[in-house]
C-alpha cells in the first residue's frame, strides 16, 4: 500500500527510537497486567497461549504505534492510488452537471470503527460537494450514529462558511430494521434519481438491493466494506469497489495526514512480519513432510514436533 519516499534499506528505515518507546509502553502494560492480574499466569493454559494472545498482539500494536509516532515528525509517505476514492471528484462533478443529488449509505453499523471510517469518507464527499452546491443525502440505520453524523455534517457546512445551506433532511435515519432500511434507501435512490451513489460501512444482504437500485437509475456507484461476504456483490454491481484494507486506508488517502499514512506503513510492516511467519511455517511443514516427521493421525516426531510446537505458538488466546 505504501512506499517510503526515500530509497533506503529496510532496516535503516525502521523507526528504532519510536519502536523502542512503543515496545517499552506495551511491555509496561504487560507487566502491569501480569502483576495485578489474578494469578492466571500461574496456570499452564496461560502460557500455552502466551505468544499469540499477548506477545503477538502487543507486538503488532507496538509496530503500528511506533510508525504513527515516527510519522508525526517524518515527511510525507507515498500512498498508491485507490481508484474508488479518486472518483470522488468525478461523482460530484457528474451530480453537479446533472443537477441531481448524491446518496451516501452508511450501512447497518452502529457507533464503531467501521461506520466511523465510512462517515469520514462521507464527510470528504460532502466537503467536495458543498463547493459545487450539490446535495449529498446521507442515510443511516443506527440512531446513535445518526446523532453523530448529523452533528458532523452540520459542522462541515459551518466550516465551509455555509451553515445556512445545511438541510436537516440531508441526514436521514431510515429504520433500524435491515430490510426496512433497505427498502427505504432504495426508494430514495429511485425517487431522487441520484447521479451518484456511495455505500460505505457495514453491509449484509441489503448490499445488492441498494446497488441494484443505484444501477437502475444509472448512478455512478462507489462501495466499500470490510464485510468480506458482501464484496462480490458490490464488485458485480458497482463502478468502483474498495477491497480489504483499502477500506481503512481511506482517510489516510483522502487527508494525506502524515500521521495516518504512518499507520499504513506500520500496517504494511506488520503484514510483512505475518508473511514471514507464514513462510517459516510452510518451510517447516514441507521439511517435516519430506523427512517423514509428520505422519497423519500419530504423534509427530523430529521436525514434525518442531512444527507442532511452532503452530502451538499461534493458537488463539483463551
Amino acid at each position: 500500500m505504501e512506499r517510503s519516499s526515500a530509497p533506503q534499506s529496510f532496516l535503516a528505515s525502521l523507526p528504532v527510537r519510536e519502536l523502542s518507546i512503543a515496545a517499552g509502553l506495551v511491555a509496561a502494560a504487560a507487566i502491569v497486567g501480569l502483576t495485578v492480574g489474578a494469578g492466571y499466569w500461574k496456570t499452564t493454559e496461560y502460557w500455552q497461549t502466551f505468544i499469540f494472545g499477548r506477545v503477538l498482539v502487543f507486538g503488532l500494536t507496538a509496530l503500528v504505534l511506533s510508525h504513527i509516532l515516527h510519522a508525526r515528525r517524518g515527511g510525507p509517505v507515498f500512498v498508491r492510488r485507490i481508484p474508488g476514492l479518486t472518483a470522488v471528484d468525478e461523482t460530484v462533478g457528474r451530480a453537479t452537471e446533472m443537477g441531481r443529488p448524491i446518496t451516501f449509505s452508511l450501512g447497518l453499523g452502529g457507533l464503531d470503527i467501521i461506520t466511523l471510517q465510512a462517515l469520514a469518507v462521507a464527510l470528504h464527499v460532502i466537503r467536495t460537494a458543498i463547493r459545487f452546491g450539490t446535495r449529498v443525502i446521507v442515510t443511516l440505520a443506527d440512531s446513535t450514529m445518526y446523532a453523530v453524523a448529523d452533528e458532523a455534517v452540520r459542522e462541515s457546512y459551518a466550516a465551509a462558511g455555509r451553515p445556512e445551506s445545511y438541510n436537516v433532511e440531508d441526514v436521514r435515519f431510515l429504520s433500524d430494521r435491515q430490510f426496512a432500511y433497505a427498502s427505504s434507501a432504495m426508494g430514495l435512490i429511485l425517487r431522487e434519481r441520484v447521479a451518484s451513489n456511495y455505500m460505505f460501512g457495514r453491509f449484509f444482504a441489503e448490499s445488492l438491493i441498494l446497488a441494484e437500485a443505484g444501477n437502475q437509475v444509472g448512478a455512478i456507484q462507489v462501495a466499500g466494506t470490510p464485510i468480506i461476504t458482501q464484496i462480490p456483490f458490490f464488485i458485480a454491481a458497482c463502478d468502483y469497489t474498495i477491497i480489504g484494507d483499502e477500506y481503512y486506508a481511506a482517510t489516510a488517502y483522502l487527508t494525506r495526514e502524515p500521521v495516518l499514512s504512518g499507520s499504513l506503513v506500520g500496517q504494511d510492516r506488520s503484514k510483512m512480519f505475518l508473511i514471514a511467519v507464514m513462510g517459516l511455517g510452510v518451510l517447516l511443514a514441507t521439511a517435516a513432510m519430506l523427512t517423514g516427521g509428520l505422519p497423519v493421525g500419530e504423534a509427530p516426531s523430529g521436525l514434525g514436533a518442531v512444527l507442532d510446537g511452532f503452530s502451538r505458538l499461534f493458537t488463539e488466546a483463551k
Partner: peptide, 9 residues
C-alpha cells in the same frame, strides 16, 4: 490489521 490501526488512531 487495518482495523487494529484504525482503532489505535
Amino acid at each position: 490489521l487495518g482495523g487494529l490501526a484504525m482503532a489505535l488512531r
